[in-house]
Design a protein around this nucleic acid. Structure first.
Lengths: 169, 169, 169, 169
DNA sequence: TTTT
DNA sequence: TTTT
């Protein structure tokens, strides 16, 4: 019992989200996002760039938001945790795949809502307000109590079953 | 509407926590923690050290854990957000005070449980298991559903009223 | 010797940066950025919003980038550390002010370069490429060695003198 | 050009570090660290635990520190970035492996120095001071200038060649 | 006021 | 394979 496992990413989606539904009815959304870093070669002085691709999976209510608002090219902020899943190929070989999991403890924020449809973008979701989402589900209506300061997300997360037999890349 | 406001600290408590209770019965715990950084002077090569003191305030269930387990000298990991409060001196002058707020969206972890009572420490709580705590309150028992993976904390946070008329330092 | 002191913010500038120069010639840039969080009141269900303002100060080369590229309204990602300065009012009273310091160990990234001048913005810097900046200064040209992977920023940071007699707000 | 790619971990080493040297003479250190999270099953109320294992690779001077100070069981704080490497099996199949890279932009801190040799530990490095390390190399001696505040790490990082033909697990 |  |  101990540990911190936190990932923070800002990047762009390489494709539209892929969304599936659990037997429980909960959505699971998968995206790929690219982060790139640039630097100058110390010898030649030339500008270098390296792009890293990340598999990010969203559970619960936040998966619905991903489905509704994100598209290929969307720039987002993501806070989640690392998880490495073991899975088998069709001929029974072991494989490992590492993902960034955004569940009720994680967060997602859209960062490009302002570039908006007004600029002639063909992206239909751009007129929607940019959501700022915790992974959490609905907040149960509590009884009484002051409320001058932000509370937080809460319960209702419906579980996250294994997908170990999915091919990750 | 948008934004990330996150603080991550690892440091030691300068004194025992100060705990108060809200009219609602919720605890509020205040601590001071020190972070220090060291570097070598670029001219003399001498080792330098600078210590920074942070005011951290905990709300809800996590405040109870702070009260129970933390003491002067405890080393902790904290994740919270920045908040600057305006308050008045007795003669009506405005003052501002910035704190790190750890509420249901934040986290705290003890990092020194292992140094334990076995070493001759007089600290009575050292035998207790080191808690790993989200700010959250109780989790409501949900109905049905798989549970192979960690869910998350949830609701029940009882509010965090203003303390703007308190003197912060 | 121990400690982590890290702040991560995403928000918008409330005004153009204020830039000064040290006797050494190094720039120091100050900005105010707003982060806001929204939540629903647990009783009334009404949407609530709270905006937090942060003082951020940049040292070294990154301060020049702030001066050149950021304006009122710019949305940025910032990674820095907390620092509380003590200063005196004109009549000799002690005051404390907490800032987020972005020096050579910090980072800044513009997040809204794409909204561009094309939308009729009067902001002249919008055509410039959005910089991704570490706080670092110039990188000394090293001798030999492979370079297939990103190195990192380096030396040359010119110091950050005290500004304790400045009024912070 | 844009992006944030950050990983923050607190966990324990599952084994002693494995250290290799580049043709350039630079060290590369690999460790496995475990982070665990606990939660209560929402139905049964039983305590659950899930442990996640992370591959972490250190480059440059920080790799030397890892070699010198870390051992199986050490608890550390690590700040790095995600990198997925493609490699080939002996029979030419593609594989992918995701690691947390701690280079000059990353950080490592020991968190258990205080448990010390005094408790009967057989670990010989326990008497050494716990290092607080940036990934950086040596700092070039600058000429003149004030130095009242911490500067930062700097240059000299000797490169990080590809290891794509190594087997990662 | 902590810690190393 | 760590830790509590």
């Amino acid at each position: 019992m101990a540990g911190v496992n936190k990932v923070i990413l800002i990047g762009n989606l390489g494709a539209d989200p892929e969304v599936r539904y659990m037997p429980s009815g909960d959505a699971v959304a998968n995206i790929r996002i690219a982060t790139s870093e640039t630097w100058k070669d110390r010898n030649t002085g030339e500008k270098q760039e390296r792009t890293e691709w990340h598999n990010v999976v969203f559970f619960g209510k936040i998966a619905e938001i991903v489905k509704q608002y994100l598209r290929k090219g969307s720039k987002i902020y993501v806070e989640g945790k690392l998880r490495t899943r073991k899975w088998q190929t069709q001929d029974g070989q072991d494989r490992y795949s590492t993902e960034v999991v955004v569940d009720i403890n994680g967060t997602m924020q859209m960062l490009d809502s302002r570039q908006g449809g007004g600029m002639g973008s063909s992206v239909p979701f751009d007129d929607a307000p940019a959501p700022q989402s915790r992974g959490g589900g609905q907040r149960p209506a509590p009884s009484g109590g002051v409320n001058e300061a932000p509370p937080a997300q809460s319960g209702g997360f419906g579980g996250s079953a294994d997908f170990d037999d999915d091919i990750p890349f």
